[in-house]
Computed example of a mutant assay.
Amino acid sequence: MTPAARVQAAIDVLDLVIEAARSNGAPADRLISEWFRARRWAGSGDRRAVRELAYRAIRACGEIPATGRAAMLRVAADDAQLAPLFDGSRHAPAPIDPDEPVADSGVAPGWLMKRLADNGVEHPEALLGRAPLDIRVNTLKSGRLELPEGAEKVAAANGWRYPPETRIEQSRAYLGGMIEVQDAGSQLTCEVVAARPGETVIDLCAGAGGKTLALAAAMKNAGRLVACDADRTRLQRLPPRAERAGASGIETLLLDANREMEALKPFVGAADAVLVDAPCSGTGTWRRNPEARWRLTEKQLERYAAIQSRLLDVAATLVTAGGRLVFVTCSLLDAEGADQAAGFLARHPDWRAELPALPAGTSRGAGLRLSPSHDGTDGFFVARFVRL
């Protein structure tokens, strides 16, 4: 593909991403992969270039753009080398009309920018930088592990960091299950659980099990670890991951959304620790999913907050006296963080908050906030409660 053809390809991809954002369709990564799957003639250099152009445009536009062309024109307005490629040649975008619409620049939609400011989020532009590649050394299998070159230590106990473009999945350490890809902030939230060998620990919203595997390593495969989720497809990804990681004895439990207690009855009052990594807006993960900020609405935020409150109440019934409940969201909004923690304590006077002792983060209400600008991690809120 010529450079100009790559620009037009990025515009075509952006049109798909914009439409999906408006209709709550597939994420950008999947759309881009599917677009290239139908164009196998495109080389690896073309794929990389088109992908980078598309994500530059996504990151450049705060509000959802009208079209992919308007989004790419936003990038071209600040890139003297890009604008001349709109030359109307074969497979190239049409020449730029001085009067045609150009998408507005910005970090996020206006209502969301106000929320971030009101919630004390500083340097929101950091939410759109490229995320590094963080890995967790799997202490169940590390042995004489030799990390691939280029690693830098991070605050998480077993965490290391690589540049964004690192292809760690082809390394011997990854293929052998000695390391897992996991953001340093995610690793730190698992440390707050302080899971110990011999305990009964429940990961209530386990998904595909990234945090479950970290808990299994902390427990040294000794105790009872139950991974729960209402998404069968995601939960089914955990057993093969656990086998590769050498994490034995993890139980999986499929829940029925809004009827979780039907499956959880045997665990009432039995857990030493419960982790609630609740569904949320994902405002802390924009570095990885920048188009997510175009999808979020105030009504959706309210729905997430309601789900989080309900799951916290469910989790509280599972914890034994003296046990702990850890609440985590990958969000920087108080509605999904400090306000949730305050609401939980108001509803449950037989619990108290313990401020997590981490080598990163800033206090926010009863918990801690991790952020790209302050900690170099994805954005998280984490709170730890203890049953009296």
Rank of each mutant, 00 (worst) to 15 (best):
residue 154 V to M: 08
residue 154 V to I: 13
residue 155 A to L: 08
residue 155 A to K: 14
residue 156 A to N: 09
residue 156 A to P: 02
residue 157 A to P: 04
residue 158 N to I: 02
residue 158 N to F: 07
residue 159 G to Y: 08
residue 159 G to L: 06
residue 159 G to M: 04
residue 159 G to E: 13
residue 160 W to R: 03
residue 160 W to Q: 01
residue 160 W to L: 01
residue 161 R to C: 10
residue 161 R to Q: 14
residue 162 Y to L: 03
residue 162 Y to W: 13
residue 162 Y to V: 07
residue 163 P to W: 13
residue 164 P to H: 12
residue 164 P to A: 13
residue 164 P to Q: 13
residue 165 E to L: 02
residue 165 E to Y: 12
residue 166 T to S: 01
residue 166 T to I: 00
residue 166 T to C: 02
residue 166 T to N: 04
residue 166 T to A: 04
residue 167 R to H: 14
residue 167 R to I: 03
residue 167 R to M: 05
residue 168 I to R: 00
residue 168 I to C: 02
residue 169 E to I: 01
residue 169 E to G: 07
residue 170 Q to P: 00
residue 170 Q to I: 01
residue 171 S to E: 11
residue 171 S to Q: 08
residue 172 R to E: 15
residue 172 R to K: 15
residue 173 A to Q: 10
residue 173 A to E: 12
residue 173 A to V: 08
residue 174 Y to H: 11
residue 174 Y to P: 00
residue 175 L to A: 15
residue 175 L to W: 08
residue 175 L to N: 07
residue 175 L to C: 06
residue 176 G to V: 05
residue 176 G to T: 07
residue 178 M to C: 07
residue 179 I to Y: 02
residue 179 I to D: 02
residue 179 I to A: 00
residue 180 E to P: 01
residue 180 E to W: 01
residue 181 V to E: 05
residue 181 V to S: 05
residue 181 V to D: 12
residue 182 Q to C: 06
residue 182 Q to V: 02
residue 183 D to K: 00
residue 184 A to R: 04
residue 185 G to D: 12
residue 185 G to S: 10
residue 185 G to R: 07
residue 185 G to Q: 08
residue 186 S to G: 12
